[in-house]
Every structure is written in structure tokens, then in C-alpha cells.
Simulated scan of single mutants.
Amino acid sequence: MSTTKHGAAHRRGHNRGKTVGIPVALSAAAALVCLVFAVLPGGGAATGGPAGATVGAPAAGSTAGSGSSAPAAGAPSDPAQPSASAPASPSSSASPSASVPARASASAAAKPAAPAAAPAGGRIRPGVGYQGVATAYEAADGNGACLFGPSGDMMIAAMNHTDYETSRACGAYVRIKASNGASITVRIVNECPLPCAPGQIDLSQQAFAELADLKVGRLPITWSLLSPADAPQTLSVRYQTGSSQYWCAIQVIGHRNPVAALEVQTGTGWRQLPRTGYNYFTAADGKGCGARIRITDLYGEQLTVDGIAVRANVVQATPVQFSRH
């Protein structure tokens, strides 16, 4: 754009010279005077000034001003390429360089504020309704894959393999409503292996009979997680048979809400233990066995328990219980 304007000015000056008819000698003298002014200090400022202004503020619509530094209006911007305006206005909320760190900072600050999302992470979630089918099995004394032991209340059930999810469903209270309108609450103490389908719950015969005649066999149901008011007042902890200071496995019993994680305190801080399909959390190297225990439920609530010694296969009561939701 600047080159085009300079050429037009040059052509206009050339036409004026021909119109007035200045003598050749006078023209030569005038040219000599211009040359003298050009070499004096400050000479050329008039011609250099406009050129500099053009570079510093390109005209709207110029090719140089609409290159990679600023995408055309309506064109998608490349997130990997910060716009030219970003360095000029770092405090502006609209600039990419300011908004990206702001999002990262907000995300980091939000993580501690929502602990429930991290431990939950399973298939069964609070406030969600599930569809499936109810079947029945002979529950005997009520013991099952969760290894809680005999049950005094036969309103119990086995969760299908998929939703059992490596014992995450153990101890969960589930509200079941049948297609005929009948409903019951059961506690998950067992696993229904494949081919039990996702959503299917295998009820004790006693529980199924509360919904329909056992001859029905398969009953369409809807179900959801429950945080009951009539759960045990406190939960208990049990070390598995064979546990010692060199190896241990820990189980939580009588919890109102499903247990999402279990940690033990070591010399370097809290250590989360892996969970087994038979509902124990194991410390294969013994680190943390007999130390403080921290238990997290599906909602993110954490309870810390002291004074639980390594006493194999002994149910040890605690003074704590998860809140009702």
C-alpha cells in the first residue's frame, strides 16, 4: 500500500513540471538545490515519515495486516497460534493468553472442592435410575462374595458381574421397584456372575417373594442407590485371616453408603490400598498395617479411624458412620 501511494505522488510531480514550461537550466538548478537539502541534517524526514507511519499502522484490509497473526473475521482461529492481540493486552479476559491460564487455574482450584467425583468413578451412581430384571437364588445363610458373613436379614441380593465392579457394589443399599408396582430395599452381599446382564439383580428368594411369586422367574425392575436412615449406627473394620505386620487385608462392614476407597497412614503419608473382588483392601508389603485408616464413601465423605489393631478375622467396632444422603 505504501509503495503504491509513493508512485502516484511521483507521477503527479512529473506532470506539473511539463505544464509550467520551466527552462532546462532552471530545472537543473532546482534539482541541485533539492540534492543539497537532501544531504542536510533532517533531510528526507517528510518522505520517511509517511513510510514509517504506514508500517506501524497498516491500513485496514491490507494483506500484511490480515496474515497469520490475526485470522480473518468469521474464520476459525488456531488454538496453537496465539493472536497478535494477546501480548498487547495480557489482562484482557478476551485474549487467548489470559483465558487459557485462567481456565487451568480454575480447574486446579475446583478439584479439591469436588472430592466425590474422584472416588465415585464407578458404574453405580447416586441419583441415577437403572433398568434391569430381577431373578432369585437360594441365599442360604446370606453370606456371599462380599464376605460379610451370615446375614440376620434376608433382604439381600447379588449384583450382576458388570455392576458389581470388583466389589464396589458390596454393602450398597438398593431400592427396587417391580413392574407390578411392588417395591423393596435390599443390601448387596453377593455377585451374580456372567451371564447375569448389566442392570440385573439376583435377589434372595425371600426378597423376590416380596415382589412377586417365585414362579415368575424373571421380573422387570427399576432400581437406584439408597442412603438409608436405618443403617447401623456405626461401621466396623475387620482384618482378613492371615493378616500381620508383614501383610494384611482390611474390610469395612456395616457402612451406610458404598465404600469407594480405603487408605492407611504410613511414614510418608496416606496410602490408598487396592481392592480385591472379595471386598478386602490389601497391603501386600505390610506398610500401614495396624496404622490409622481413612475410609471414603461414594459421596466423597472421609472418616478416619484410630486404634484398629491387626487382629485377624475379628470385627472391630468404630465410633463413626457415613452421613445420610
Rank of each mutant, 00 (worst) to 15 (best):
A86I: 00
A102T: 05
S183F: 05
P119F: 13
T135C: 01
C248Y: 10
A72Q: 14
M1D: 12
P101H: 02
G288V: 01
A57H: 08
A70C: 10
Q131H: 14
K18G: 07
N143M: 13
R103S: 03
P79I: 12
V39I: 08
N190R: 01
A158T: 03
V128G: 11
G121V: 00
R125C: 11
D285T: 12
V24T: 15
A118C: 07
A117Y: 10
A28C: 06
Y278N: 11
Q265P: 00
P319T: 05
I176T: 05
D285S: 15
T47A: 03
P87N: 07
S62C: 10
A70K: 10
S93F: 04
P115I: 07
A25M: 06
I124V: 15
I250Q: 02
P76N: 11
A60D: 13
R12V: 04
I184L: 03
S99L: 08
Q272Y: 05
V33Y: 02
A57E: 02
A249H: 08
G199K: 03
A207R: 01
A207Q: 01
A172N: 04
D141L: 08
Q131T: 12
V20S: 11
A157T: 04
V315L: 14
R275C: 02
S69Y: 04
Y130L: 06
R238I: 06
S92A: 10
P115K: 13
F322H: 11
Q131W: 13
A249V: 01
A317T: 14
T3K: 12
L26D: 07
G307P: 05
G149N: 12
E138I: 14
R125E: 14
E210L: 05
G269M: 06
C289K: 02
R16G: 07
A261G: 08
V189M: 04
